[in-house]
């Protein structure tokens, strides 16, 4: 049974026709062409599909698309503003917080949620909060470092979103 789903994606309203068993990840990638969130496992384990739903991190692969009706979804595509990278994106880039980059969209969204809740996390708090995002390339140290430098204010937001 197809239905129209309306929600706010990266600040703009969208309408899209979906079926009840389609996940938010299916709809983003296959219907809306938003391919930032990746499909690593479709099982909730890897974290690369992580997006923010009303500001909270969720697995888009475990989220039935119709359940986000009327709500706000933020993906990595919504992090930069007018081509200006988000401080976390700059820090990840400059600190080499990835190799292949497959985990990065999910890492960035989890990191944003962490800093939104706790602007000055300790190293332990960062490790705990990021524990559901796996990096097969093993860039964990650089990821922690990038989050730490943003928390320390090194890439103060330059008019970027939040």
């Amino acid at each position: 049974m197809k239905q129209i789903l309306s929600f706010i994606l990266n600040g703009s309203p969208v309408d899209v026709i979906v079926t009840p068993t389609e996940t938010l990840l299916d709809v983003l990638r296959e219907k809306l062409g938003v391919t930032g969130p990746k499909r690593g496992c479709d099982d909730g384990d890897c974290g690369t599909c992580t997006v923010l739903l009303d500001g909270e991190p969720v697995r888009s692969c475990l989220t039935i698309a119709l359940t986000v009706a009327g709500r706000e979804v933020l993906t990595v595509e919504g992090l930069s503003t007018d081509g200006d990278l988000h401080p976390l994106q700059k820090a990840f880039h400059e600190h080499g917080a990835f190799q292949c980059g497959f985990c990065t969209p999910g890492m960035l969204m989890s990191a944003k949620a962490l800093l939104d809740h706790n602007p000055t996390p300790s190293r332990t708090e960062i490790r705990e909060y990021m524990s559901g995002n796996l990096c097969r390339c093993g860039s964990y140290e650089e990821i922690i470092e990038a989050i730490q430098v943003v928390a320390a204010g090194e890439y103060a937001p330059s008019g970027g979103k939040e």
């Binding site: 909730g44 974290g47 992580t50 739903l53 909270e56 991190p57 969720v58 697995r59 475990l62 989220t63 989890s110 949620a113 962490l114 909060y129 524990s131 559901g132 995002n133």
Partner: peptide
């Protein structure tokens, strides 16, 4: 339980 993005849901 899980990790933050699991616990939110």
């Amino acid at each position: 339980h899980g990790s933050p993005a699991i616990r939110t849901k």
